[in-house]
């Protein structure tokens, strides 16, 4: 582990310990925040008793579905836009300011179209995630070194072989950044939609627990989300850094 890594771990440990002490000594009321150890305890009970297994399952399936749709569709749209310069000139300024729009405000519209449930939630999560995948695909295809195209011509590769053996591997690091961002946005979209309006999922369970003053359950589930997102993001980030390092070689 690097020196920075050790300090970072120490910072996190000290922060959690301070929170634990503040809660145990009564500086923070348990009606506001429960001690980190109590959160872990609550999460353990939730997982063992299986009270929210269905909610957890629904949320993760929705996140997976949203990511898969956003990545595949975003990649295809990116390829089409890249191949058609006139369309690209028209779309690119809009893509650049896309994330300024509070897309989430259109969630009620998808409820009208798909009803309350996974359909509307996946739709809004895809809408959030897809543009980062489109942008990543465009960057990836732009950055393929011209020499690789020449090599493909020298080797007389067909269009399919060229795409699979040259373009895709060359664009892969950028595409992966798109996948990483899509996963993050899919999580945000799914959990936020469940939280505001839905009948299932971890986001819904947290909102439900909040409304019924079940602090213990609420903090257990929050810990689950924070840990799950941190683990997934750190994993994807590590792979991403490796691929980016390959680019610089």
């Amino acid at each position: 582990m690097t020196r920075e890594g050790i300090i970072r771990l120490a910072v996190v440990v000290v922060a959690v310990a301070a929170l634990e002490a503040a809660c145990r000594l009564g500086a923070i009321s348990p009606t506001v925040l429960i001690a980190p150890s109590a959160m872990v305890d609550s999460l353990w009970d939730i997982l063992v008793a299986g009270t929210h297994t269905e909610d957890i399952f629904v949320s993760f399936v929705d996140v997976l579905a949203s990511t898969a749709i956003a990545v595949v569709l975003g990649f295809l749209v990116g390829v089409v836009i890249h191949a058609w310069p006139a369309l690209r000139a028209a779309v690119e300024p809009l893509l650049a300011s896309y994330y300024a729009v509070p897309t989430f405000m259109f969630y009620p519209v998808f409820i009208i179209l798909f009803g309350v449930g996974s359909g509307a939630i996946v739709a809004i999560a895809v809408l959030l995630a897809i543009v980062s995948m489109i942008s990543a695909t465009l960057t990836g295809l732009d950055r393929i070194p011209p020499v690789l195209g020449k090599t493909a011509r020298i080797l007389r590769l067909g269009p399919v072989e060229r795409a699979l053996k040259i373009s895709l591997p060359a664009a892969l690091p950028h595409l992966f950044t798109g996948v990483k961002l899509s996963v993050a946005y899919a999580f945000i979209g799914v959990i936020a939609s469940e939280f505001i309006l839905s009948g299932a999922g971890v986001g819904y369970a947290i909102a439900y627990a909040y409304n019924n003053f079940e602090n213990r359950t609420m903090y257990g589930l929050m810990l689950l989300i924070v840990v799950a997102v941190t683990v997934v993001n750190t994993l994807l980030d590590t792979i991403d850094r490796r691929l980016q390092a390959r680019l610089r070689r």
Binding site: V32, I188, A192, G203, A207, M218, M222, V226
Partner: peptide, 10 residues
């Protein structure tokens, strides 16, 4: 990258 809505009750 964290879905910050999760923390809104806090």
């Amino acid at each position: 990258a964290l879905p910050k809505v999760t923390l809104y009750p806090v």
